[in-house]
């Protein structure tokens, strides 16, 4: 079992290839790995409450063990504040991301 940090910076509504990245996260988790899925930049647009057919919902349904974090700075820039954050997504920050990256056994992938 390995630890993965997958960083998604792209908006699923703009880049269809984000779907593959979400699938990688789900597959890694289903294979028994610890997976953190960190949303940043336009990647957080999927964390807004009320979005239909949400990529994060599909990910969490397929692999409930994936921990989904969203960069608070990116959320604020896009008016996803207070009650606007969808369930299942935890507000985080670059400080926590750096802590995750500063572990030698963690495999980090940026998309």
């Amino acid at each position: 079992m390995a630890d993965y940090v997958l960083i998604e910076s792209r908006d699923p509504f703009e880049y269809s290839d984000t779907g593959y990245f979400y699938e990688v996260a789900a597959d890694l988790s289903k294979a028994g790995n610890n997976v953190t899925f960190f949303l940043v930049q336009n990647g957080v647009l999927t964390a807004r409450k009320g979005i239909s057919n949400r990529a994060v919902d599909k990910l969490q349904k397929a692999a409930p063990g994936v921990k989904v974090l969203a960069d608070e700075f990116s959320l604020r820039e896009r008016a996803i504040i207070g009650g606007k954050l969808a369930s299942g997504v935890t507000s985080s920050d670059v400080d926590e991301l750096v802590d995750l990256l500063a572990v030698s056994s963690v495999k980090a992938i940026w998309h």
Partner: peptide, 11 residues
């Protein structure tokens, strides 16, 4: 931001 945070953490 990642670089800045890492350096401030002593990394």
């Amino acid at each position: 931001r990642i670089m800045d945070t890492a350096l401030r953490k002593g990394i």
